[in-house]
């Protein structure tokens, strides 16, 4: 599964996306665990970041599968 980073999270991770290899689908909690292994600095942002899956905000029960495009959405500031 591909995870996209935007705005300040690009600065935090130093990249705009990462590929996570997982044979089984992941819950949001498991996905965060994987992400924090690679980017421990993301921990500070976890509480303010929303997850999106295929361009829609994920719900609490969303499960992320291997061909999903996931995005970490930090607080938005458009307009």
């Amino acid at each position: 599964m591909r995870v996209l980073f935007f705005a300040q999270l690009k600065d935090v991770t130093g990249c705009d996306s990462v590929e996570i290899l997982s044979p089984a689908p992941l819950t949001a909690h498991q996905l965060w665990t994987e992400l924090l292994k690679q980017f421990p600095e993301l921990a500070a942002h976890r509480s303010s970041v929303r997850l999106a899956n295929h361009c829609e905000y994920a719900g609490p029960d969303t499960v992320f599968a291997s061909d999903d495009e996931i995005a970490l959405i930090p607080p938005v500031s458009g307009g």
């Binding site: 705005a7 999106a52 959405i73 930090p74 938005v76 500031s77 458009g78 307009g79």
Partner: peptide, 14 residues
Amino acid sequence: FMDRLKQDVPIWKR
């Protein structure tokens, strides 16, 4: 719309 835009639309002042 403007209220919701500022809450939900993934656009950022970089």
